[in-house]
């Protein structure tokens, strides 16, 4: 069996490569051609058995485990974030409520103080005589005299 398409003078037409000058290479190419032809001839037209794609066990298991871990991580992360937000909101609400209460208490205190001062003012103005009243009386008496 020859792999060459021999011409009348035994040379390969259009052969640009020096495969013929290297007997080892030529022999290898000859065998390779024979191998490719024999293999394809044997395989050609053979009924092909349905290939059952056997999935190796650890790959889907690893994929599932990774997926579950990611889902759990995302869920716990979301839950933690939500919890943190709720706690912060509660803290803020408490602070606001306290501030409001303090403001109310201060307001009430201020009102009570003002009432007390008003009461004290009115009481004192009624009981204490005018500071210059005796002198005024003396001056009136002198003038009459």
């Amino acid at each position: 069996m020859s792999w060459k398409k021999d011409t009348a003078d035994g040379t390969r037409p259009n052969s640009p490569i020096d495969a013929e000058s290297d007997p080892v290479l030529e022999r290898a190419l000859h065998d390779f051609r024979a191998n490719a032809h024999a293999w394809s001839q044997a395989a050609y037209g053979q009924p092909r058995a349905q290939v059952h794609v056997a999935r190796s066990g650890w790959r889907p298991a690893a994929a599932w485990a990774l997926g579950c871990a990611l889902a759990a991580g995302s869920l716990s992360g979301a839950f933690y974030a939500h919890h943190q937000r709720a706690a912060m909101a509660a803290r803020l609400a408490l602070r606001e409520r306290t501030a409001q209460q303090q403001q109310l208490t201060a307001q009430q205190q201020r009102a009570a103080d003002e009432d007390l001062l008003a009461t004290v003012d009115s009481d004192i103005s009624r009981e204490v005589p005018a500071a210059m009243e005796p002198l005024a009386q003396l001056m009136d008496e002198d003038a009459a005299r």
Binding site: K5, P13, L29, R33, A36, H37
Partner: peptide, 12 residues
């Protein structure tokens, strides 16, 4: 390579 040395095709 395959076209030349397995299929024996001409360069053209």
């Amino acid at each position: 390579f395959l076209l030349r040395y397995v299929e024996d095709q001409e360069l053209s």
